[in-house]
Design a binder for these strands. Sequence first.
DNA 1: AGGATACAAACAGACCGTTGGTTTGTTTGC
DNA 2: GCAAACAAACCAACGGTCTGTTTGTATCCT
Lengths: 222, 222
Amino acid sequence: MARNKYPEETVRRILDTAERLFVEKGYDRTSLQDILDETGLSKGAIYHHFASKEDIFYSVCERIGKRNGAALARLRDDDTLTGLEKLRAISRLSLQLERQAKTFNMMPYLKDNAKFLAMEMCSIYEDVVPVFMEPIIRQGIADGSIRTAHPRALAEAMVLLSDVWINPIVQPATREEIRARCAVYNQLFRSFGIEELIDEEVVCALEAYADMPRPSQPLNAV
Amino acid sequence: MARNKYPEETVRRILDTAERLFVEKGYDRTSLQDILDETGLSKGAIYHHFASKEDIFYSVCERIGKRNGAALARLRDDDTLTGLEKLRAISRLSLQLERQAKTFNMMPYLKDNAKFLAMEMCSIYEDVVPVFMEPIIRQGIADGSIRTAHPRALAEAMVLLSDVWINPIVQPATREEIRARCAVYNQLFRSFGIEELIDEEVVCALEAYADMPRPSQPLNAV
DNA sequence: AGGATACAAACAGACCGTTGGTTTGTTTGC
DNA sequence: GCAAACAAACCAACGGTCTGTTTGTATCCT
């Protein structure tokens, strides 16, 4: 097939397949050939739409970011909620978003997904914090529900802990350990006026991670 | 040269070279050929001592871990300090260790060093927290200088924030931003009885990061 | 005690399959 | 007719293997 009438459909197919494979097997262990096989496309097709394998990866990440960003923007711009209420809502939302993206699937296999972790860190600093979290915290300062002189730094700490510690659970943990993490997480931010950042409902949802099947080999196995 | 009398010297040469190259250029961008060229060894030599390129990487990480572990163990077992005092000392120590390992050099190029970041995360959960931080916090609980019902979780939060946010500075920041991060970091742990976790001296040392030359291209550039 | 011998450690370097990436060619919608 | 949308042959470089060579050292014989 040449001169497809709907090339964006081909792009979507490539991204869908790549996203699934990257999440399932990790970036390194997914070869271009794998993507070719599963899409049924040729190398020419792929390299017509993307500059490199890394470019596919970045496009996949960008698409995930956009999906999540849309939901976060809606929350940020909701003017029926206080800043604090929005932060609480984000805990629930990010749990949900993560399950959608199935990124929690890959987290147990951290070493195969180093690239995702690095990208997440980048997007936290370049996107999530400045575009969503800092504005929300500034609103919280304005409406009196949050107290801090450093909204940006507070946003960074909160998102980092949320996204690389609490949710997803990077390291296997028992229900008690997960509960303990949530308790500590909540206490950490209490002095900023932020009470009960993670509520009981979210804690219960997070506890479900404890039952997830885990790889038997240690993360740093060769 | 065959049947070297001091093979461990060869291993050291490989590890030294690999560590430098991995830190300078990142794991992916360092080829085996690079290591061969810089050590003057042959492929046979490398694969005699190591099973794979990844094996070299893990050995490099292990060696760094051992270097740092020795210093951390000395601190942990020092019985002239309270738990809280040890935590403060760790802030200073980790700054120092990181500069030794030159890992701060690579952090601005996060995407080229995704593997290091992932390994650091693994070692935090598998090594730093259980072996060093949790015992210290437990001591702090016993001697009354730290208050928490969840020593493990508190240790995790502290080390994560310390190692992927405060030090090294993953994201370029101005002196004011770095200072703000330290202020927030300190406030976060105050309710656990931990006052002034990072003192003024360390803050000043961290501020020096602001003057570090940074890559001109954005981190997620292709 | 010391020289010959056996053996495996410590390499060297040719070789291999796979990989990401390029180029050239072909079809086809507009 | 022209370029977008592919197909597929081709390429260099990569990680990894295999075979071959040198040589330190333990063992044995005298």
